[in-house]
């Protein structure tokens, strides 16, 4: 439906425009837009870009930001690969207990992050079940190291790729896979050249969601991280620390730095996605 030029909306007999639009915009403003504006106002006008840069441009802040984004990227890349594999297993293979496993994939959505945090710490701590075993077998320490942060973020981001890719796999036209085989392609070539490209846009969507979630994640990480400045201190924790010191400007500067980096990343992923969708045409 096309709109007449300069018209806000096209005419319709459907009732409830004023009420629904009003409720939506009021709530959106009060809950999301005004608080967001308060943050930006405080940062750019109350405090100033140069001052913010000075706060951010310190080793401790840089290493916290670098850690947050590095760990989120690593965990999300793991979730991208594992999520596609798991989605494939859940759609294509049959094994006992499949429906329960399928339902359990959403556990990280339903389990509060603080619960996940202390639970992961309990098993991966040096005296925990896996923690002790890994330490003895490989001398590998998980909890209170960056590795622990990766594990917490993998947990938090696990369902995103699986849930975006699963419906796409279900809708794959099996005939294209058969066509590839009749043309002489091995199964591996069919998977890499025919199946994977069709999953790419959805997988990227899931990747972006997982990344956005894990960059800002706090609850599940702080228990397992150890929170050593410059080593295992994530950016959200540094914001909390600044707030506890009543250094609001410092907290705002780090928050705005985080937001800018993650929006830039999401924008790039979006562009890649638009490109890969466009290549496939409209179908």
């Amino acid at each position: 439906m096309t709109l007449r030029p300069f018209a806000l909306r096209s005419p319709t007999p459907m009732p409830g425009w004023g009420l629904s639009f009003g409720v939506m915009m009021t709530t959106l403003s009060v809950i999301v837009l005004v608080p967001m504006a308060a943050l930006l106002w405080r940062g750019f006008i109350g405090f100033g870009p140069a001052e913010m840069w000075e706060v951010v441009n310190r080793p401790r802040v840089w290493s916290a930001l670098a850690l947050s984004f590095r760990a989120a990227l690593i965990a999300s890349v793991f979730n991208l690969v594992f999520g596609v594999a798991l989605a494939w297993v859940l759609v294509r293979y049959r094994f006992p207990g499949k429906r329960i496993i399928d339902a359990a994939v959403d556990l990280p959505f339903a389990l509060p992050t603080a619960v996940a945090g202390i639970a992961l710490t309990a098993i991966y701590a040096p005296n925990g079940f896996f923690g002790a075993a890994l330490d003895q077998a490989f001398g590998l320490k998980v909890a209170y190291t960056e590795l622990g942060i990766w594990i917490a973020l993998v947990f938090v981001g696990l369902p995103f790729v699986v849930r975006t890719v699963q419906p796409v796999i279900e809708e794959i036209d099996r005939e294209t896979e058969e066509a590839s085989a009749t043309l002489g392609a091995t199964r591996l070539r069919t998977l890499t050249h025919v199946v994977l490209p069709t999953l790419t846009p959805a997988a990227l969507t899931g990747f972006a969601l997982a990344l956005a979630r894990s960059v800002g994640e706090y609850g599940s990480v702080i228990f397992i991280a150890g929170n050593l400045p410059n080593v295992t201190e994530i950016a959200p924790l540094l914001i909390v620390i600044r707030l506890e010191e009543f250094d609001y400007d410092g907290a705002v500067a780090i928050a705005i730095a985080m937001l800018s980096i993650s929006f830039t990343m999401l924008l790039v992923i979006n562009l890649i996605q638009i490109m890969s969708r466009r290549r496939m045409g409209a179908v």
């Binding site: 709109l3 909306r9 629904s20 999301v32 967001m36 960059v215 907290a251």
Partner: peptide, 29 residues
């Protein structure tokens, strides 16, 4: 139920909380 301008923008704004760290959300308030 209605066709109006700016729908994609509003949709993006509704999704905004998904890409904001909970800690930053708390900070805003």
């Amino acid at each position: 139920k209605f066709d109006w301008r700016g729908k994609p923008l509003v949709l993006t704004l509704i999704d905004l909380p998904f890409s904001v760290s909970p800690v930053v959300a708390g900070l805003m308030f």
